[in-house]
Design a protein around this nucleic acid. Structure first.
Lengths: 135, 135
DNA sequence: TTTAAACTCTATAGTCACTATAGAGTCAAG
DNA sequence: CTTGACTCTATAGTGACTATAGAGTTTAAA
């Protein structure tokens, strides 16, 4: 299977696959006579695993760690658990930040209506006034 | 006031100030004999305005638009309102995504406990099994 | 007065996870 | 044998900075 078919079967772009290889998330593969990458079914598995992790917003570095761990089945899985806990914490924090942000944005948005000129614009006025609070 | 003092008074790094100048968020300033940038109080105002907008997660491009609008006080402020509405929508969407993600992560995390080996690791097992669902 | 420290300058590279492009080579069908 | 679809490598771009190198400027102390 050449890279194009792998891309199609995993719904991943060709460039991304090459990028993952460079980043050591996929092993270097056999090459054909014409220097084309050749993949087997295991490559599909590996790539789908990576995609799944990316959907969970894990970084490539985190995924690299997981892949390494997968290769030592006897080790304790504390490290996997710790990574997940940290990751969940990061997501929690980001949600909190965004909820706060949304609140601010809505307050700000309510301070203006469409019929005004820039000069009267409640949003710009609020922003301009708030500058001074930040000093 | 030289760039270092401006940085201190706005709690902004020197590099960031130079970056904003390059990106046309701050005007080019007078220079001293030794080619140092010289700022006045208005620069503080402008920079604080930018910081405030960045805290609202507005992009530099959005902020550039706001700054341009601020300079034409007679114009209608529809554009400001529209930008804010779009921005709020983006934040909403991202919050929804992250809430979904958090749910997935928590389910996944509950599938494992610390005393297991990698081989028994519920997280890795789930991820490895889920691969197949995605095909 | 020298010299050292602290500041400033420009230009460039790095971050992350890709995406896009150029320019060249490979391969199968018609 | 040529066309078109594919593949290869290498490089640059994204956004909003951060970090570095190597040079010049200014201020204060020795």
């Amino acid at each position: 299977m050449k890279i194009g078919e792998l891309a199609k079967r995993t719904d991943c772009s060709v460039q991304t696959i090459r990028y993952y290889e460079k980043e050591q998330l996929l092993c270097t593969t056999q090459r054909s006579d014409g220097n084309f990458r050749l993949y087997d079914e295991a490559a599909i598995e590996q790539l789908l695993f990576i995609k799944l992790c990316r959907n969970l917003d894990l970084s490539l570095s985190e995924i690299r760690q997981l892949l390494t761990l997968k290769r030592s089945p006897g080790a304790q899985c504390d490290q996997v658990n710790r990574m997940m806990d940290e990751h969940i914490q990061q997501v929690e924090t980001r949600i909190q930040e965004l909820v706060e942000l949304r609140k601010h944005l809505k307050v700000l948005r309510r301070s203006c209506s469409s019929e005004r000129t820039i000069e009267q614009c409640g949003i710009l006025q609020t922003l301009t006034t708030d500058q001074h609070k930040n000093r």
